[in-house]
């Protein structure tokens, strides 16, 4: 089966700082991949390169087999319009929710549909309500984000991304800014999405989520993939010393059994 997302020899520099140093990653339809690694390992940058929030320094990213950008004089150039279109097909959820505070919950979830996809208001509203129901917040549709809890805000952000009918969803440490008691509701929503067959790439420190939900865990270290495999392999019997140290640092995570 052809992968939905293919990352090939991806490099990203910020000035002289090499954050990604040759990443290869294939994600197939319906798969949930969790990216692990300590801070500075490049996992967030990798995620942000996939929907071109950051432009890769070199390397190729393919969506459904089609490479993004055009080759010109041995370099890849990206047109703004192409990237905008691409981002409508890749949903992203952020650590700090980034809801639009001047719009109601419903308007937040309708905005991209109406402004970018040019859907009619009726269609956008119907779709928004459906996605809000999916994350369990349809009764909050008329509220402003300021009236919601962190967990609710994040679920609205998920609904906002889902309303664009993305082929892939990216989650960038979406529970890191939440109070501990609110983490569960967001993870539950993500788990439900994964079970419904959504293709997901998640940067997270929630090892329990990685263990129970991910099909594959990828461990990044210093801009490269250090270890990759099923959660049982990587979390249960890590080969690399660095991965073992990382897991020991997360003392709260105990493998079942």
């Amino acid at each position: 089966m052809q992968p939905i997302v293919q990352v090939q020899d991806l490099h990203k520099n910020f000035g002289s700082l090499e954050v990604l140093r040759g990443i290869d990653l294939d994600v197939t339809e319906g798969e949930t991949v969790v990216l692990l690694g300590s801070s500075g390992s490049g996992k967030s940058t990798l995620l942000r390169c996939i929907n071109f929030m950051e432009e890769p320094s070199s390397g190729i990213i393919r969506l459904h087999g089609k490479a993004v950008g055009q080759q010109r004089n041995g370099r890849t150039v990206y047109r703004g319009a192409e990237l905008c279109k691409l981002r409508t097909r890749i949903g992203m959820v952020f650590q700090h929710f980034n809801l639009f505070p001047h719009m109601t919950v419903l308007q937040n979830v309708m905005e991209g549909q109406v402004t970018v996809l040019r859907r009619s208001r009726e269609e956008a509203e119907a779709k928004a309500m459906k996605q809000l129901a999916r994350v369990g917040l349809d009764e909050k549709a008329r509220e402003f984000p300021a009236r919601l809890s962190g967990g609710q805000k994040q679920r609205v952000a998920i609904a906002r991304a889902l309303a664009m009918d993305p082929e892939v969803m990216l989650f960038d440490e979406v529970t890191s800014a939440l109070d501990p008691e609110l983490v569960g509701e967001v993870l539950k929503t993500m788990r439900q999405l994964a079970e419904e067959g959504m293709t997901m790439i998640c940067v997270t420190h929630e090892l329990g989520f990685a263990y129970h939900v991910a099909n594959r865990v990828t461990f990044l270290h210093q801009g490269q993939i250090l270890e990759e495999g099923t959660p049982q392999e990587v979390l249960g019997a890590p080969k690399a010393q660095r991965v073992r140290e990382f897991l020991e640092g997360h003392s709260l995570f105990k493998l079942p059994g």
Partner: peptide, 19 residues
């Protein structure tokens, strides 16, 4: 974050500015 959220749903610069 507001720029990023708008960008992530496919908005261009002008749309982000206006909306």
């Amino acid at each position: 974050g507001q720029w990023e959220a708008a960008k992530a749903i496919g908005m261009n610069h002008a749309q982000t500015m206006r909306r």
